[in-house]
Design a binder for these strands. Structure first.
Length: 561
DNA sequence: ATGCATCGCGCG
DNA sequence: AAAGCGCGCGATGCAT
């Protein structure tokens, strides 16, 4: 059963549909206040809730202690169906752009409140939405798709991701402010009172000034710093750390340390703590499907860039543990599964990179890693490029797949992930340059620029199929895990809030953190493994590709790895 | 004063 | 070792 929820100025309506999408009687009318109890009651029948946007419905339900098992997030689903090659002939994909194509989550649209003059800069995106009609269009698009099973799985996984994003924000990542402050004090010195630099940074700056024999050094401005270094005779092309590392000069060591610590202070210092951590929790906004490949984005506090330096401040509650898990070498494994390259699958029996060494393609594990990254990113120079021929000889099937994706992109074409998320088309400027360079008599400079741009898009599509399919694996892993964790916490219908049971608190592309009562930690580990195997089977069927995960049961995130 | 591009660096 | 993919964010410096 589906239950479609619609919110309008007149209130909320709930329309039940059978599995074929036909209405089951009349719709119910509800107020906002009545909604949580209504959802909780109907949830016992395990319906799939259909709504425009999880971020518009689910936070309030979670706040009221109501968790739902599954949903259709129409906004996320629409985004996929609109662009997928698998549904390109559907009515949905061929309709003019409308409110479901809005760039921002529907929740972020300011709602007009009795304004006499409703200034509306975007009539298309702000047009009223009809979830019932949209759901029918989406079902039709899936039913008529080339691979309904794949796109259907993708939409289910994406929608589950929408729920998980809300749940993780609701639960929050446990961060102990006093631990974070101690870390900062150890590295930077005591918190400065005003706007002066912390003691450690000031000391480093003093050393740099002494070494260079001038007071005129401002390491916070790349342009100024470069000038100062040049005045002292250093041959620096930029102030990037890895370039500075190449230079042999006494000022480099304190400078690099300054840059490292200054970065910590700016990105995750006291100001970060004050702004983003409250009540012992860090609650960023996760953005499912935020990247074109389907990877998640996040906004607020740089959630996906939490530096290793401060992970020790992520601490489980008393009596609880953090279970940190990540998929080992996910992207190369995805490539071997995508291409059904049995030799590469064989190499992935244990440590994939060691397996590649054993295959004889390269000499060392480090080379294997660089070569695989090069294959997936499209390296042309450096070690990655140099090792490509050997890798191609060892795994022709896998390499042919990414090469083909690259060629498609270079022509301006579309590629798709295993489950059917398709790459965007290059923009207008891209096409104009390609066309401009293809006319007879185009200058060599123009043709070179077009070639470079073409290869650039090829690198994007090459990586898209791997990164995007890896994102699908991660979504399926997490979606399966979510259900398993809920069931671990007690019999269904036994009540209890999400945060009273083992629950997800962090997600980073191929890594998750589960916050769990200590006595359930071992069970959580088992479920993480089961969910990983299940994700592989769901997406790739019976292919003999393994997706091992590493796990660590810890008190704080800093102890993992 | 505010917006935008660039640099640089954190994460995968 | 620093090339090749995907992101977010803060500081700076220039343009409006």
């Amino acid at each position: 059963m589906y239950v479609v929820l619609t919110r309008s100025t007149r209130g909320i309506t709930a329309l039940r549909l059978d599995d074929a999408g036909s209405p089951l009687g009349e719709s119910d009318s509800l107020t906002e206040t009545e909604l949580p109890a209504f959802v909780a009651r109907l949830e016992r029948e395990r319906p799939r809730w259909v709504w425009d946007d999880s971020t518009r419905w689910y936070p309030a339900l979670l706040a009221a202690g109501v968790r739902v098992e599954r949903c259709v997030d129409l906004r996320l689903s629409h985004q996929i169906l609109r662009g997928s090659e698998l549904t390109a002939t559907s009515a949905l994909a061929n309709a003019p752009l409308g409110p479901w194509d809005a760039a921002t989550p529907l929740a972020e649209k300011p709602r007009p409140e009795g304004a006499l003059f409703d200034f509306d800069p975007d009539p298309v995106a702000d047009a009223p939405t009809d979830p019932v009609a949209e759901f029918a269009l989406q079902r039709e698009a899936v039913a008529t798709a080339a691979e309904p099973g794949r796109i259907g799985l993708l939409l289910a996984a994406e929608s589950a991701g929408g729920l998980i994003a809300c749940e993780m924000k609701s639960a929050g990542l446990p961060v102990r402010a006093e631990v974070h402050e101690r870390l900062l004090a150890d590295l930077l010195g005591e918190r400065p009172r005003g706007f002066e630099r912390p003691a450690r940074l000031e000391a480093l700056l003093d050393r740099m000034r002494t070494i260079l024999g001038t007071h005129d050094v401002n390491p916070d401005s790349p342009a100024e710093l470069l000038k100062a270094l040049r005045r002292s005779g250093l041959q620096a092309a930029s102030t990037r750390s890895w370039e500075l590392e190449q230079i042999d000069h006494p000022v480099i060591a304190p400078l690099l340390e300054y840059k490292k610590l200054s970065r910590l202070q700016n990105a995750n210092g006291w100001n970060w703590l004050d702004t983003w951590v409250a009540d012992g929790r860090f609650r960023p906004d996760y953005v499912p499907g935020g990247a074109a490949t389907g990877r998640w984005g996040a906004s607020g506090g740089g959630a996906l860039q939490l530096p290793k330096q401060v992970r020790g401040a992520v601490v489980a509650d008393p009596g609880w543990k953090l279970v940190v898990a990540d998929a080992a070498q996910l992207e190369p494994r995805v490539l071997s599964a995508l291409s059904a390259d049995r030799r590469m699958a064989e190499a992935g029996r244990g440590d994939l990179y060691e397996g590649i060494v054993a295959s004889g393609a390269v000499k060392t594990r480090a080379e294997a890693k660089v070569a695989m990254l090069g294959a997936m990113y499209g390296a042309t120079a450096g070690d990655g490029g140099r090792l490509m021929p050997a890798l191609t000889r060892a795994f022709p099937q896998a390499i042919a797949l990414v090469e083909q994706a690259a060629r498609t992109g270079e022509r301006g074409g579309i590629v798709s992930t295993r489950l059917g998320r398709s790459s965007p088309l290059p923009g207008e400027e891209w096409r104009e340059l390609q066309e401009g360079a293809s006319v007879p008599g185009a200058s060599e400079g123009l043709r070179g620029a077009a070639r470079s741009q073409s290869r650039g898009w090829g690198r994007f599509t090459r990586n898209f199929i791997v990164q995007g399919t890896a994102a699908e694996w991660a979504l399926c892993w997490m979606a399966g895990l979510r259900g398993r964790l809920w069931n671990l916490g007690g019999a269904d219908g036994g009540g209890g809030r999400l945060a009273d049971r083992p629950h997800l608190v962090f997600f980073l592309h191929d890594e998750v953190i589960v916050h769990t009562p200590a006595e359930l930690a071992d069970s959580v580990v088992a479920e993480l493994r089961s969910a990983a195997s299940e994700a592989g089977r769901l997406i790739f069927g019976a292919l003999p590709v393994e997706f091992p995960i590493t796990t660590a049961v810890v008190d704080d995130y800093g102890q993992a790895k």
